[in-house]
Design a protein around this nucleic acid. Structure first.
Lengths: 192, 192, 192, 192
DNA sequence: TATGAATGAGTTTTCATTCAT
DNA sequence: TATGAATGAAAACTCATTCAT
């Protein structure tokens, strides 16, 4: 060690940075593979070996990145929640008017429906949360609530701008929009 | 075996009838137990032993009624589809007018949402169908289609009766109603 | 069920008794197999498959009798403790005088040393208890203490009967006897 | 590689000496770490990664010093045997009289009992030797025998010096002393 | 020499399914 | 028909060991 000190000090930073990038990339790859396989086969039926193969790894290697299958599942769900939130906020912020924002969000959701894996992932997430509310449900619930609030704010703003009839109950409409969105997701599942 | 002695004392016909009733009742019990457990634990996590226990049977006995877990699953799904169809048709037939029929169907669906197990079963069915379209998807798809048609017919009838604005696209409205229904199901799942 | 009632009532007792005996015998067989293999290969290296094979079963079958490898280990240890206690008490009760009791216990311990598997099991138990005091140590500690007390009582009785010099500290001698016994166990381990 | 540059600035001899010292120190550190972890977790449960971490190294690095976990185990056992031998000889040589030598050895052994890790290591060694006599037992056996002879010689010398009653069987007493020593080790294990 | 990511064999555990009773 | 013990094929997870850097 005393002989190598200089060398280590020089290289450590670089090595660490490279390794971190590599590790982060692998983590991401596993996460993506898991999301795909959970969607295609179902959470229980997707084996760690399946996921590993999809991520070009051996099954054991996954455990360097995620402590257990359950942790991996949680991470996949976290990513899905984040993705959903971003989708809404991005469109809402970019739009020139409240009504336009609502329309764009709707259009964006419609487009995203073509990502079948993400679609299934969302529904599976809801099911899992329904069955294990304390392990998985809390964040999902918060997520849904925050999206509902965003919709409600947009509706009220549109009402203030005269773009939507003021007699409409903004809260109820927000609920209805969200329900319809979820519903369209369900219908989109239909393989027919 | 001696345990059948009592049965043999009855005339052949009676025995057969009793046995048939008995078998049918057991089948139904297993089906119900399976539906409950598939909903609560998920299809893969619900074991045959769980289901047997819930139906007051031993694990092996189920195989007298269903050839495999997959067959049992199929039967559970069949029942769910049938139940859904009946629900719609019953209400539609009993209503005095088309619009009233639509309203009653809506109310009935709303009430059924409180059967959490049925709710989860429906969603799980859709997921399974999405993943294995040829094994499970076809009938589900037909079911959804037939319900959509029923809705569309009711809407058209209501339009003919002047109860609904004729400028509305009946087909699109039927789709929307169905989507909203599915969507409310999803929101109802939310444990929060 | 209603058809079979009579038959079931008649046979249930018999069936249950037979089954219970069978189950108990299997449990015992597994326990013995496990004790042997824990001794021969060590606790960690003895696999459930090894144990099952030694007990003429498949690995999975063990789980009908013991919830986990750890439970099985605990049961093996429990049996060893019980065996040790019995050995001491039996000899002590049967002897005509306190000193004779001490001698008989000593002779019995000496004889038991030839059961190499039991020997190793005892030592392994002590090691395991040392490492996981709260999981395994408490009962073992109690066991050792109760044997020490028995020895002390015997020594005091022998002193009262004039068989052992009264100037000797009974407690210290009991400790020494126990230590020597343990020590001879250790030396007996020596394969040379 | 550049990380060796500093080392090359030194003369060949110096580099070699430093490297040798370094290697020896590392080897020793690994050996100590392994002894500690084998004692605390058990041989099988202590992982190479555990040991490496305890020795401030990465898992792979150990293989520069020991070809396998088994070799490492063997080395740990060798050290323990050597330590035991030295302990006895040191005290025996330093004592002014044979009886005093015996007493000092006894006292030293008593003191060493407080090194719980060494204690457990000794017992584990005996167990391992009992199970794999040809791999691990031979040297241990020789060690025990040589200590017994040393004790016997001391006893005889004490008898010749009139310090111990000549009627006592020196060989038997040596055996007994050794057994008691081992036995006290076992009792010391007791967590209670 | 040191690192630590990856591998692959092995271990515990679970469960659908079978079958003797 | 019902039971429940047993099987055997997975599946999650662990770890000694290797190897590119």
């Amino acid at each position: 060690m005393f002989i190598h000190v200089a060398g280590y000090l020089l290289s450590e930073g670089a090595v660490t940075r490279v390794t971190h990038q590599y590790v982060a990339a692998r983590r991401e790859a596993i996460l993506d593979a898991a999301a795909r396989l959970f969607a295609r086969k179902g959470i229980t039926s997707a084996t760690m070996a399946d996921i590993a193969a999809e991520a070009d790894l051996s099954a054991g290697a996954i455990y360097r990145y995620f402590a257990s299958k359950n942790e991996l599942l949680r991470a996949v769900f976290d990513e899905a929640v984040t993705r959903n939130q971003q989708l809404f906020r991005e469109e809402a912020l970019a739009a020139p008017s409240p009504l336009e924002a609502l329309k764009r969000v709707g259009r964006r959701v419609w487009v995203e429906l073509d990502d079948r894996d993400a679609l299934i992932c969302d529904i599976q997430m809801a099911l899992t949360a329904a069955r294990e509310p304390y392990d998985f449900g809390i964040e999902l619930s918060r997520n849904r609530e925050s999206i509902r609030q965003l919709l409600e704010e947009l509706i009220r703003a549109a009402q203030d701008a005269g773009e939507i009839d003021r007699s409409i109950d903004a809260s109820a409409l927000a609920f209805l929009l969200q329900a319809t969105t979820s519903g369209v997701q369900m219908l989109k599942l239909d393989p027919g």
